[in-house]
Design a binder for these strands. Sequence first.
DNA 1: CTTCAATTCTTGAATATTCAATATTTTCGA
DNA 2: TCGAAAATATTGAATATTCAAGAATTGAAG
Lengths: 144, 144
Amino acid sequence: MAKPNTPITEHLAYLLAQANREINRQLELRLSKEGVPVEQWRILKVLSDGDGHSMGELADAVLLNHPTLTKMIDRMVSDTLVYRVQDPHDRRKVLMFIADRGKVLCKKLNSLAVDQEEHILESYGDKSTSELKRLLESLIDSSN
Amino acid sequence: MAKPNTPITEHLAYLLAQANREINRQLELRLSKEGVPVEQWRILKVLSDGDGHSMGELADAVLLNHPTLTKMIDRMVSDTLVYRVQDPHDRRKVLMFIADRGKVLCKKLNSLAVDQEEHILESYGDKSTSELKRLLESLIDSSN
DNA sequence: CTTCAATTCTTGAATATTCAATATTTTCGA
DNA sequence: TCGAAAATATTGAATATTCAAGAATTGAAG
């Protein structure tokens, strides 16, 4: 009576990794039309509210750790997609803003991303999609 | 009447990335007790059926691309957790097997992983967990 | 008010991943 | 059967990420 071990494919951690990998791959494919990695789209999207966001805040929002974000922002500053401003209220902080070129690019990327969401809705269904989103949100909540 | 753009937090791709990151972080934390990265646990788990698995098969199963897997396997061979055998039926292939030390380690890792699943079940609930798993499986299916 | 701990961001070295090219073997059509 | 194309795994160089340390500023206790 050996206990049959749970196959890896039944672990939640594995299913999440697999689904994430697949959806991310599809999104990458679309965004590559503009030569932009997914993380840069996230950054532009967060900054597109026009407010200044500190590096720490941004790192949390776009799921990157600090040094990685710093280096990616360096590249984006070179490409004049975003720019840095020292926070006047707390000079340890740097506030990031989206630049004009960034806004233009972000619009294009948004429509590519919307394409993908629509594609998912078609093949996966409206109901399943919104239910999945709800469950994911609640999982994230319960993990804090 | 500017169209309010969907916030990043409402995209399925983002929710998946966020949930995956969080659950993976928790799992990493547990497995780090044995000093083993999540990918190595996956490899051991797949190989623990005792059969030989080719590198390509394994790469798919553990969600790594070929060169990354090759280098990780190199390390695991050094640690005598797994070993390589040339496939006698197709000499392009290499078959991977789990070694005794690997089996012992895998058992420990499994119980750490089960701990985590139980922790999730507690805070997130039985019903939600199985429903989420079902939806993820079906999303993965519909993406092929 | 001064000093020490905490916060924020960046840097550089160590590590890991990826892309493109290579080597080997098999498959399959002419 | 021969030779070209496909499949499989590895390698090495280029690139990216991470860890640990550092620099600057703020907060807060004595």
